[in-house]
Lab assay of single mutants.
Amino acid sequence: MGFKLLSKLLVYLTASIMAIASPLAFSVDSSGEYPTVSEIPVGEVRLYQIADGVWSHIATQSFDGAVYPSNGLIVRDGDELLLIDTAWGAKNTAALLAEIEKQIGLPVTRAVSTHFHDDRVGGVDVLRAAGVATYASPSTRRLAEVEGNEIPTHSLEGLSSSGDAVRFGPVELFYPGAAHSTDNLIVYVPSASVLYGGCAIYELSRTSAGNVADADLAEWPTSIERIQQHYPEAQFVIPGHGLPGGLDLLKHTTNVVKAHTNRSVVE
């Protein structure tokens, strides 16, 4: 069995187990497998329904001669939608809004960016022009300005110390501490036991640490421990890039980060 097929099978099995364990909360999309990078042309966006009122959005972007996937989250909030992270750029984010209108038909009224990198804030200006209120932590807003990236308009308070959590509509926002970046936030959907790890969490097929220019490698494993301790009931975990899975993604990420750190020390 090929690795790609095995990865998709694991996603399907995880979703099936969740649907059985929580039949009222989960209505997993039966329309197909989780979209992969090879299936999404740059400039297009796919939506994948995880649970009743919960979707991931998947886009792709060219970077350094390669094409990478990027995940975000959409959560229903009454007759409105909360968006977590842009679709990595203005063109993708405009396509995301169009796809949401086509498939869901509810307005996106608020959006949260989970850290300051372009795959999370690139497209904020498109959201703002569409009347979406954009939010991020003060740290993310400051770092985005320093980096020359787009800056969300509103500040999220109460997320300055490791372990801080605040309720934001249908989700809980959690600051686990520094990891992929010093400002990275985690998003949890309690009604569906869905954990969105953003770039602080890796997919299972990833074996290298990737972009760690703004990471705190020493603190990252401790931050992941905080996530595990705060959300032990999480059933569906979405990484910032690639295929979702279960809580095993947290341990896998820790292993990859520690291996990278150990290699760096040896070198």
Rank of each mutant, 00 (worst) to 15 (best):
A144I: 09
Q229A: 12
A94F: 09
Y68E: 07
S160E: 11
P190W: 08
L249H: 00
E219Q: 12
D118R: 06
R206V: 09
R263I: 06
V54K: 03
I17S: 04
Y175F: 14
I100E: 01
E145V: 11
R206G: 11
P232L: 08
I151K: 15
Q229K: 10
A98V: 09
L47P: 03
G177C: 01
V67G: 06
H241R: 00
S181H: 00
S139M: 13
V126R: 09
V265N: 12
W220P: 00
V108S: 06
G210I: 12
F3C: 04
T86L: 02
A259R: 09
R142F: 11
E44Y: 09
D248K: 06
I224N: 12
S30W: 12
Q49M: 08
G246C: 09
V256G: 03
L13Y: 15
S7W: 09
S181D: 01
E147A: 12
V265L: 11
K102L: 14
R142S: 09
I50G: 01
P23W: 05
I50Y: 07
H260P: 13
S223H: 02
Q228E: 13
L127M: 11
K251T: 05
E39L: 09
E233L: 09
V132M: 08
W55C: 00
M1G: 04
V42W: 11
E233I: 13
T261A: 07
V112G: 03
A87Q: 12
V112Q: 02
L10T: 10
S30Q: 09
V266M: 06
Q103N: 12
T153S: 10
I186V: 08
R141T: 10
W55M: 04
A94E: 13
P41A: 05
T86V: 15
V187D: 02
S113L: 12
D64Q: 12
G123T: 03
L82S: 14
A129T: 05
V108L: 08
Y202S: 10
G169V: 03
P239W: 01
E147N: 10
T207C: 06
S22L: 09
E172D: 11
Q235S: 05
S155I: 06
S27C: 09
K4S: 11
L6K: 05
C199P: 01
V146Q: 11
N184D: 03
L156C: 02
N211V: 12
A25M: 08
R46P: 05
D248I: 07
M1D: 02
V54P: 01
E101A: 14
G242A: 02
E267M: 14
P69N: 11
P244W: 13
E147Q: 05
D164K: 08
E145H: 14
L127I: 15
L195D: 01
D77G: 07
P41F: 13
L127G: 02
D164Q: 15
G158R: 14
I104H: 02
T222C: 06
T134A: 11
P239M: 02
S181T: 09
G169C: 03
E101D: 14
S264A: 08
T254G: 09
I186G: 02
L82W: 15
Y48E: 07
R206W: 12
V194N: 00
S181V: 12
D216H: 10
P221A: 07
G242W: 02
P239R: 02
A200D: 03
L81R: 02
S160Q: 12
G122P: 03
G210A: 13
E267C: 03
L73H: 02
Y202M: 15
S27N: 04
N184V: 01
T207I: 15
L217S: 07
D119I: 01
P239D: 02
C199S: 01
V124H: 04
S191I: 08
A87S: 15
I100L: 14
E101W: 15
G72C: 01
K91D: 14
R128G: 08
S223C: 03
G105C: 07
A25G: 07
Q49I: 10
A144V: 09
Y196E: 00
P232D: 13
H180V: 00
F3S: 05
V194R: 01
Y202W: 11
H260Y: 06
S113W: 03
G123W: 03
F63K: 05
S181E: 01
D248H: 06
A51D: 06
Y135E: 01
Y196W: 06
S161K: 14
